Amino acid sequence: GQVNVNNTTYTFPTPKLAKEFAQKAAKKYNLTVHVSGNTVTVK
């Protein structure tokens, strides 16, 4: 799974890890998680 945070893309071996990372990043920066297919964007 891929996660985009502040124009930086992070790649994870599983969608589960990507989702967990996205949720932590969203909480940390007070942003929202947007899911589109296999790509998760935090903005």
Rank of each mutant, 00 (worst) to 15 (best):
G1C: 10
G1Y: 06
Q2T: 13
Q2I: 12
Q2A: 12
Q2V: 12
V3M: 11
N4D: 10
N4F: 08
V5W: 14
V5T: 11
N6P: 10
N6R: 11
N6M: 14
N7S: 15
N7D: 11
N7E: 15
N7I: 15
T8G: 07
T9H: 06
T9Q: 06
T9D: 03
T9K: 08
Y10E: 01
F12L: 03
T14S: 10
T14R: 02
T14K: 02
T14G: 04
T14I: 02
P15E: 15
P15F: 10
P15D: 10
P15Q: 10
K16A: 14
K16N: 08
K16E: 15
L17A: 13
L17K: 09
L17M: 12
L17Y: 04
L17N: 03
A18I: 01
K19I: 10
K19F: 11
K19D: 06
E20H: 07
E20S: 07
E20R: 12
E20Q: 12
F21H: 02
F21I: 02
F21V: 02
A22V: 02
A22D: 00
A22S: 03
A22K: 02
Q23I: 14
Q23P: 00
Q23G: 05
K24L: 14
K24C: 14
K24S: 07
A25R: 03
A25N: 03
A25F: 15
A26P: 02
A26D: 03
A26K: 13
K27M: 09
K27Q: 11
K27Y: 08
K28N: 08
K28E: 11
Y29H: 08
Y29T: 06
N30H: 12
N30L: 06
N30T: 04
N30K: 08
L31I: 10
T32K: 09
T32S: 09
T32M: 08
T32L: 09
T32P: 05
V33E: 00
H34T: 14
H34W: 14
H34A: 08
V35A: 03
V35R: 05
S36V: 13
G37L: 04
G37V: 03
G37S: 03
N38W: 03
N38Y: 04
N38E: 03
T39E: 05
T39M: 09
T39F: 05
T39L: 07
T39D: 03
T39Y: 04
T39R: 08
V40W: 03
T41I: 11
T41N: 04
V42W: 05
K43H: 14
K43V: 15
